[in-house]
Amino acid sequence: MKHWYSPSWFSLQLWEQFRFTNPLALYLIPAIGVLFALRYYLHRTAQQRLNMSLDTSGSRSRSEGFMGGIVRTNQTLMSWLRFLLPASVFVGMSFLLVALARPQLVETHRQEQSEGIDIMLAIDVSSSMSEADMPPTRLATARRVAQTFVNGRKNDRIGLVIFAGEAFSLCPLTTDYDLLKQYLSELNDQMINTSGTAIGDALARCINRMRDPTTVPTDSMQTAKKRTKIVILLSDGDNTAGNLDPVTAARLAKAFGIRLYTIAVGRVTESNADAATVDEGILKTIAGIGNGSFFRAIDAGRLRDVFAQIDRLEKAPVRVVVYEDVQDFYRIYIYWGIAFLLLALLLKNTIVGNVLED
């Protein structure tokens, strides 16, 4: 910190950064100037003057004329010195008022706190997801949109389950979004050789990940119980494989307080000639049981809108904590005010304060 007598305390840049706790005190500074001006106006006719007559006629010597010029110069200097005392008092009182206004430098820090939510992505990687009715393929579009969804989340734990004729947990709940996006980028329809669509088994894998206490640190078990839990299941077909009925799995999810969102991807066709059919019946059913919503996405734009809508619906409350680092500098200007008032007291006991004012 700079010394109190440093000239930098009067820089315009520093004063623009100051926050004054009592700014009304600054308005008293012009009032003091008005009082001094009024005092000078009322007392100017009562001031004692020393009139000097200088005879500079031809009978005087040239040296006397020179002395007369010196006297006139001294009179001008003395007339200005008489303002030194009131100026010192004015400046001293002004600095004391600045100190009373309490100048501060404030540094603000914002911290966002959120417990976040748990999200499991269940993505169908069966052969029907390679259809090109959502260019380039259904799976490629779903993969890209899911990565964008992950990018928009904060403080949430997200996991990944893939399924076809079987279901596998590919990534546990994590906040390592880079790792999760890497898993998403590697999804393809060759990852599971078993044909079919095991929606019930996929839901079971998601439920197990969310209820597994080993995925949660011991000291945050109580917090984890309060976290919102959702499953986003993306598929293009009916349940045709697996060991667990999707309706039973949906009821189990509801019992654990897990909300289900289902997305049917692809265009509905009347035959299998051009594209694999999309059966949205079971997806609607389990979404209703799981207190969630069902969505239909026939193209990439609609799929992005669906994820954006889920993103808006499932937001954990965020508490914004604002910290202010406050530094007071009123003492600096108290020192300056006292210094100028002491100067005024010194001037009062000299010729400047006595002879010129009396």
Rank of each mutant, 00 (worst) to 15 (best):
A87K: 02
M120T: 00
F18A: 06
L35P: 12
T223K: 10
C171S: 11
P30H: 03
E166A: 13
M52S: 10
D178L: 11
A146T: 12
M52G: 04
Y333A: 12
I282G: 10
S220H: 13
D299W: 06
I162Y: 09
L187P: 03
G200D: 15
I263W: 09
P23H: 10
E16K: 09
A164F: 09
R209M: 12
I32H: 03
P136R: 15
M1F: 01
L179M: 15
P86S: 13
K226R: 15
S128Y: 08
V247Y: 02
A142H: 06
S126P: 12
S130L: 12
D176W: 06
T194P: 09
E186H: 00
T248S: 06
P86C: 14
V306Y: 05
A140E: 14
A37I: 08
A101L: 03
A275F: 12
D236H: 00
G257K: 03
E314W: 06
P213Y: 10
M78G: 04
L313V: 14
D238T: 00
L160E: 06
C171G: 02
E186K: 00
T148C: 01
P213S: 05
N239D: 10
T214I: 00
I310S: 10
H43L: 10
L356H: 01
D311Q: 14
V352F: 11
K254Y: 01
D328F: 05
R251E: 03
V326N: 03
W336E: 13
T215Q: 10
L42I: 03
A198F: 15
K2D: 13
Q327C: 06
I117C: 08
R157T: 03
T269D: 07
G196N: 12
R205N: 10
P136I: 08
L346T: 12
R211W: 01
T137N: 11
T269Y: 15
L343S: 09
D245L: 04
Q111K: 06
Q47G: 00
L303W: 05
W80I: 00
R82C: 07
R296I: 06
E107D: 10
Y333M: 13
E166C: 02
D236V: 15
P317K: 10
R312L: 03
D236R: 02
E186R: 00
L170P: 00
S88A: 15
K254G: 04
D299Y: 04
G301S: 12
L160S: 09
Y335M: 11
S235W: 00
I232M: 07
V98K: 04
V231W: 04
L35A: 14
Y27F: 07
A46Y: 09
